[in-house]
Design a protein around this nucleic acid. Structure first.
Length: 934
DNA sequence: GCACTCACG
DNA sequence: GACGTACGTGAGTGCC
């Protein structure tokens, strides 16, 4: 039986614009920009992949816009009149789209005086009349009018098929009614007028209510008096004109027969030549392995960029059996264990999870290991179970050493992928038993690379949330086994039957999550950041955590003592001034003392109605001569330093290693930064002299020194590059003080005051400026702040454009991207709530800059140990990361050699994926302590 | 568990 | 006309 013909019509012109905004500015070996061409090429590849598949294309053609002139211009001379010129680095890519299409040996259709949309509509009509199926590859809303039985749309970027329900979801109407909605709302980009004051929501409401455009216009006079009613009456003809403009013309003369579009196997030679010419090496390799028409799905992402490499394994779509806890096996002898290890080797992949008696991977004792070799096929290997009652009988289990000896070759086998959820934890536990797990995949990090910023019902990238979100499965809760509070028991005390169900479920769920998340990476453009940055970072960060940093306990204790004495003295003086005793640490009591009892001026704030007593308020009062406010400020500083640092850090010293081991979260900060907990070593004081003493307690071992390497002004440099601000780029290229230069540009003179203001404004720009916010910081009026912002935009014109483009793209796509392809989602950027929306806008302006900076230092971290080893400096240890700073410990004699390597790795960390137009500066200092190294 | 405050980049 | 104002974090304290 002959297969039904299925015609794919690719809307090439609209795709290239979207690809341009989503992909990094790649250039080919000749220096021509090809980022959008690359995106276009991967899209064609993906489409060609579906040839021979059920419901895949049998016929395919690419339709391009040849000219912007059409019958619509004769009807309405303003049509598409205000289209901005395409960006400079996009224009040379248009002709390359044709080359790319020809490289795939596919037809490329373009006609004078006809728009691509009309050609698409005409071919679609022709094909449907012949009983073919049609898929339009586009996400253009005008084309959605064509959706009907037998015709759907495909959004390759979101990998979504769009049918009538997509129109209903977006516009609330059927595809047949969509033209009427578009006619009412108009289109700013194409300059279709519509009716002023009517947007998508109102337009769709009117059409749903009245059925079609003419009925709406006819009903207008009888509507209740309003601005909208008047507009409908006055501008009825504009709406009718708009209807004609948005209606697709489906009877254009067609240059080809449908049969010309038959899709054959793609000859490799022209394609190879094209890929070579433009340096698309990763696709070229895929082509070498197998042609696109019969290959496995090709991962998208940039041309090859060390470090990192693809997995050998690509998951196939999998029908997964339902989760059944009774299927899990408890492995209690070595023969059974060997059988599971053999299964894992045969599968080439295994999900691994360790069970321990503590959340602290540096102190946790291994209690058991679970493995999953296929969805539904999982086991638990108890290793440390047994009641704390030493006389009670312990369950039968394999001796820990025997199990480790058997598992180690599997866990270190290059040919078997180990999959984990937050694998960094397990890496640390197993490393303490001499096992160095590799290669790895981590479902938590995958989820973060795909969905950072996305708001789901249950937040986060933890396993329970992911299982619920992607598998619709509720995991057994840890607490239901161990209880909570005083009665909580260790996992080693949980009965084996329960422990098996819980632990094996974790491994099973992890493996299932991998089957859901792993295929999304290439489709959603997350492969680059995952494979080149975040995945290789996992073992690096694990190593830093295990190594820890030495802290001088006596020094901290002495500081605590000193702080306590000074606080006691201040406390007495404060109570004296207040005329009574009270808890200085209670903002509520302090506010009442200051404002009610002593009658100082200041306002209520916050929803609780309590007085604000934060540092800005107290500084102001102190400036006005309030002695008690000054003393409270001093007391607060000491209190903070003592409780958060000098006391708490002593308790964090690991009794076995004598060092402090922080835990970094790779998924903690939406922008891609790391975060640090237990203890947080990313907020150790430095800004005040008294706080800086705490840094002096972070010391090197005898004979060693601490080396601190900081990126200098990295975010401003990245802003200068990303917004393409020539003045700022020049200043960085010439090593100028950037705040001085800004002060010169803004105020015409450089002194302490103008430099300070310039610095504030520079940061304000990075954070998404508002005149109110800047006014507050600079203590000027909003109008004056606005004037400074205007001057800034005028002197640094690229900034304005960067902000506008970033926001436009964030609104359209729902996310922002860093130079290295890291996405952060901003679902609230279209919120109706102004404060919420504006908050998202500021965050969206900041995220690409902060995130790119995070990408760069992460790339440096991944390369650091291999580079040091290659230089014979394998004993240099990277200990800490503080966003733009790396801290090392090394023998005194190696400082010079190590500094050169560290500087080079950090300064060149963006290459070769991205070439920055500003140099990255790195400042290095050394000393016996972290404090001394600055 | 939340609000407030404050340490860092 | 009111809203609520710089981005990203984690931890300790008071209080309900």
């Amino acid at each position: 039986m002959a297969q039904q013909n299925h015609l794919y019509l690719v809307d090439g012109s609209s795709y290239i614009f979207r690809a341009y905004h989503r992909l990094p500015p790649l250039t080919n070996p000749e220096g021509t920009p090809v980022g959008a061409v690359y995106g276009y090429t991967t899209m064609l590849w993906k489409l060609a992949d579906d040839l021979h598949k059920a419901d895949g294309p049998t016929h395919m053609a690419v339709i391009l816009d040849k000219s912007s002139q059409s019958f619509r211009n004769e009807l309405y001379d303003q049509y598409k009149a205000h289209r901005p010129e395409p960006p400079e680095d996009l224009r040379p890519q248009f002709p390359l789209i044709r080359d790319a299409t020809r490289a795939f040996s596919m037809p490329c259709i373009e006609e004078d005086n006809v728009e691509a949309d009309d050609i698409i509509a005409s071919y679609a009509k022709d094909a449907l009349a012949k009983g073919w199926k049609v898929t339009i590859v586009s996400s253009d809303k005008d084309l959605m009018q064509l959706i009907q039985p037998g015709l759907d749309m495909l959004d390759t970027m979101k990998n979504a098929r769009l049918g009538p329900e997509a129109v209903m979801e977006k516009f609330g109407v059927t595809p047949e009614q969509l033209g009427d909605v578009l006619a009412l709302m108009g289109d700013a980009v194409d300059n279709v007028p519509g009716i002023r004051g009517i947007g998508p929501k109102t337009a769709s409401k009117l059409i749903v209510e009245h059925g079609d455009l003419e009925s709406v216009l006819a009903a207008a006079p009888s509507m209740k008096p309003s601005k909208m009613r008047d507009s409908l009456i006055e501008q009825a003809d504009m709406a009718r004109l708009s209807k004609v403009l948005v209606t697709l013309k489906d009877d254009c003369p067609l240059p080809n027969e449908l049969d010309d579009f038959l899709l054959k196997d793609i000859p490799p030679e022209p394609l190879a030549a094209f890929l070579t010419k433009h340096g698309f090496t990763s696709l070229l390799r895929k082509l070498g392995a197998s042609g696109p028409a019969d290959a496995a799905p090709a991962p998208s992402g940039a041309p090859s960029d060390a470090p990192g490499s693809d997995n050998a394994i690509t998951p196939q779509p999998l029908a997964m059996p339902a989760i059944n806890l009774d299927d899990y096996v408890c492995v209690q002898d070595v023969d059974a264990l060997d059988a599971w290890i053999a299964k894992a080797r045969a599968a080439g992949m295994v999900a691994v999870d360790t069970e321990t008696d503590s959340l602290d991977s540096m102190q946790a004792a291994l209690v058991g290991v679970s493995l999953a070799v296929a969805p539904g096929e999982a086991c638990y290997i108890p290793l440390g179970h047994g009641s704390n009652d030493m006389f009670a009988e312990k369950p039968q289990q394999i001796a820990l050493g025997d199990a480790i000896a058997r598992l180690k070759p599997l866990l270190e086998d290059d040919a078997v992928l180990k999959i984990g959820q937050n694998l960094k934890y397990d890496l640390n536990v197993l490393a303490r038993h001499g096992v160095h797990v590799s290669p790895i995949d981590d479902t938590m990090v995958m989820s973060f690379n795909l969905d950072a910023g996305q708001e789901f019902g249950t937040g986060g990238h933890g396993m329970d949330a992911l299982a619920d979100r992607h598998l619709g499965h509720q995991c057994i809760s840890f607490k239901s086994l161990t209880g909570t509070g005083k009665k909580q028991i260790g996992f080693n005390e949980v009965p084996l039957a329960d422990a098996t169900r819980y632990a094996a479920e974790d491994a099973d769920v992890t493996l299932r999550l991998w089957h859901v998340l792993r295929p999304r990476l290439p489709v959603e453009g997350a492969t680059r950041i995952y494979q080149n940055v975040d995945r290789p970072l996992i073992p690096v960060v694990a190593g830093m955590e295990r190594h820890g940093i030495k802290v001088d306990r006596e020094q901290l204790a002495a500081l605590s003592q000193d702080f306590a004495t000074r606080m006691a003295a201040l406390e007495g003086e404060i109570h004296e001034l207040a005329g009574q005793s009270f808890a200085i640490g209670s903002p509520k009591q302090l506010g009442e003392i200051l404002f009610d009892k002593l009658g100082l001026k200041g306002g209520k704030k916050g929803k609780t109605g309590a007085y604000s007593t934060d540092v800005t308020v107290l500084e102001k009062l102190a400036g006005e001569g309030s002695e008690i406010s000054r003393k409270v400020l001093d007391w607060r500083q000491l209190s903070k330093l003592k409780s958060t640092y000098t006391d708490a850090l002593q308790e964090q010293i690991n009794p076995n290693t004598g060092r402090v081991h922080t835990s970094y979260s790779l998924v903690g900060a939406q922008t891609g930064r790391l975060s640090s907990t237990e203890p947080n070593l990313q907020n150790i004081p430095i800004r005040t002299e008294i706080g800086r003493q705490i840094r002096h307690a972070f010391v090197a071992e005898p004979g060693n020194v601490i080396l601190a390497a900081d990126y200098s002004q990295i975010e401003l440099r990245l802003a200068a590059h990303m917004a393409d601000v020539e003045t700022l780029r020049d200043a960085f290229a010439h090593g100028e003080d950037i705040h001085n230069r800004t002060a010169q540009e803004l105020f015409g003179e450089v002194n302490r005051d103008t430099r300070g203001r310039a610095k504030t404004i520079n940061f304000a720009i990075l954070y998404g400026i508002s005149r109110w916010g800047l006014a507050g910081r600079l203590e000027v009026s909003a109008d004056e702040a606005q004037a400074m912002i205007d001057t800034y935009f005028q002197r640094f014109p690229g900034i304005n454009r960067y902000i506008a483009e970033t926001l436009a793209s964030a609104r359209e796509c729902g996310f922002t991207e860093t130079l290295f392809g890291r996405k952060t989602h901003f679902p609230r950027i279209t919120s109706k709530n102004q404060a919420e929306r504006q908050g998202s806008e500021r965050a969206a302006i900041n995220a690409p800059i902060q995130g790119t900076s995070a990408d760069i230092i992460k790339r440096a971290m991944v390369r650091m140990n291999p580079a040091l080893e290659a230089a014979g400096l394998g004993h240099v240890r990277m200990l800490l990361q503080v966003h733009d700073e790396l801290v090392f410990e090394l023998p005194e004699g190696d400082v010079e050699a190590a500094s050169a390597v560290i500087r080079s790795v950090m300064e060149n960390a963006a290459e070769p994926a991205v070439t920055l137009s500003v140099p990255l500066g790195v400042e290095i200092g050394t000393g016996p302590s972290w404090g001394a190294a600055h």
